[in-house]
Nucleic acid binder design. Structure first.
Lengths: 237, 237
DNA sequence: TAGCTCAGTTGGTTAGAGCAGCTGACTCTT
DNA sequence: AAGAGTCAGCTGCTCTAACCAACTGAGCTA
């Protein structure tokens, strides 16, 4: 009865005092007095809030208002997907389709509307991808940056964060499950095509480019079928 | 050091044992022994997992694998939006724009592709909206059902859940902040228009209908300016 | 047989003690 | 006097032990 209340009251405290991310919260003893609860209950409430990213706890230093990022959502999505996968569902495919559905819808809206600065930046990112391909490096981070930069043009921070969260969740699950890596050359070409299409302002072509990109990922995905009874050794779940 | 580990180990336990939603987890004493930790630490880990929706705790009954819904995401999004709002950001508008951006992209994809059964159901929902308007009732739940049913045609459970989560977060924040209610008649007409457009198979018209619908909500929103908390502060530094 | 009661199980809460990480002021050396 | 090492004090972390509260199911009562 009290536990749920404590969380709410701490949240209320943050709202009422207009605390921004990074602002210090009362210490545990202070919260005990303020909330009229035992240390344990206070800590359990804080742990729950920490899991939601609302609060950040630093050992030996203090408790602070969290970054309010979508990290907990990534965590939850990733776990849900992994759990579903091992239970024989096509949860990873669903996650990919979610990204595809959302991104195809968005890319057609920004075709031809991206400021030159962003286009230049995207050019540089694809160039870097090609360098990394030549060197045989992984291009996960660059891929992430490409998608992030692309949708920055929509001018909605929240939307961008959500898309990045989807990317993160998908990427994390795929690596955890040890799926087959993409063919880097194909990936490069497809990103170049997406960029060209967006630059040209042809919505349909941009949509098609995104769809083809995801189609490629999907093809590689189908080889990652749900399998065996035991998880891999150092799997992050 | 141990705390983060406990969560991971409990998650791993769920994965390894292929536990589905609703399956019972070991009791607290059993987990204490299995994890080699004190009751307190186990409980804090469970509380964190509960906050993420991975675990469900029922007093006097037991601990179970959670529904893995996106409820925690709604919670986090809503709090983040409310906190931002009170601190003078246009976070609620951003949330609305997120919904608009995603839904306009999606609705054009399902224009003309919805099975007749869904269309009939949507018809019934709009009819119900009109009844509720005539009776002066609120039509929040019906609105939610309309959007949910609409995107069910995309045949991606995860995608639907995400959209519903966005709807829930937005709705919850708006009511929490006491924003002005919509004009029910306008809302009805716009939903009818969306449905007609989708049925006709005209993607552009469907997109436009969605955009107009959100434009209406947005107009009402601008009257909900950030303002003070209705609660008094506790003056402890 | 229907309903009640009570013991046993499960999670919820409190209390107090000691451990561990970080900071800043103090002291000792150079 | 300036720099480096030390230590006291804050902070959160973990453990133990006891009792409270919700639920279940067996057994008793009517």
């Amino acid at each position: 009865m009290a536990a749920r209340d404590l969380q709410e009251r701490i949240k209320k405290l943050i709202i009422d005092r207009r605390l921004a991310s990074g602002a210090p919260l009362p210490t545990e003893p202070e919260l005990m007095e303020y909330l009229g609860a035992s240390r344990n209950s206070v800590r359990e409430a804080l742990k729950a809030l920490q899991a939601m990213g609302i609060v950040e706890i630093r050992h030996g230093f203090g408790t602070y208002v969290g970054p309010m990022s979508l990290a907990p959502m990534i965590e939850g999505l990733a776990f849900r997907t992994v759990a579903g996968h091992y239970r024989g569902e096509d949860s990873l495919l669903q996650l990919l389709e979610l990204r595809e559905a959302v991104e195809t819808g968005l890319v057609s809206r920004l075709a031809g509307r991206l400021p030159e600065a962003d286009l230049v930046e995207l050019d540089a990112l694809v160039d870097r991808m090609e360098e990394q391909t030549a060197r045989g490096d992984g291009l996960a981070e660059t891929d992430r940056a490409f998608h992030a930069t692309l949708y920055r043009g929509l001018d909605n921070v929240l939307l961008c964060e959500v898309l990045e969260a989807f990317w993160d969740a998908f990427h994390r699950v795929r690596t955890d499950l040890g799926g087959e890596p993409q063919d880097p050359k194909v990936t490069c070409r497809q990103h170049r095509e997406i960029l060209d299409a967006v630059r040209s302002g042809d919505s349909m072509r941009a949509e098609e480019a995104i769809r083809e990109h995801f189609g490629n990922i999907r093809a590689r995905l189908s080889t990652t079928a749900p399998h065996g009874p035991h998880t891999r050794h150092n799997e992050r779940v």
